[in-house]
């Protein structure tokens, strides 16, 4: 279980508890958080679950693998150094307290 904060572009935020083995993407879908589409269902195909990890983050996240890296070039909102596909961020106690920012658009 991990507490995840989703910050919306309008400044509001949604904080939810997400259980393993879900991903940060699935946590948003389960809680019907607007701003994560994940049309491909989490197979790192579509780039519609793009998030910006909070710049102050110190929690350990997996490395960006090649296909995630490729997909991040095509996201609807600009890629930044802290861009990730939330379907590639598995939830565990290690990322309890993670804060992600939702982009203005996913597609």
């Amino acid at each position: 279980m991990a507490k995840i904060t989703y910050k919306h572009p309008n400044g509001t935020e949604t904080i939810v508890d997400v259980a393993a083995p879900n991903t940060v993407m699935r946590g948003a879908k389960i809680n019907n958080i607007d701003g994560i589409e994940a049309q491909c269902g989490g197979s790192a195909q579509c780039g519609t679950c793009h998030v910006y990890v909070d710049e102050a983050n110190t929690l350990p996240l997996p490395e960006i693998h090649e296909s995630e890296d490729e997909v991040l070039y095509g996201t609807a909102c600009p890629r930044r150094d802290n861009s990730r596909l939330s379907c590639q961020l598995p939830v565990s106690e290690e990322i309890d307290g993670l804060v992600v920012h939702l982009p203005e658009a996913q597609s």
């Binding site: 070039y73 095509g74 609807a76």
Partner: peptide, 14 residues
């Protein structure tokens, strides 16, 4: 096997 092309193309088309 060129996901970057795909994503960028979607945006260019849009």
């Amino acid at each position: 096997n060129r996901p970057a092309d795909h994503g960028i193309s979607r945006r260019l088309l849009a």
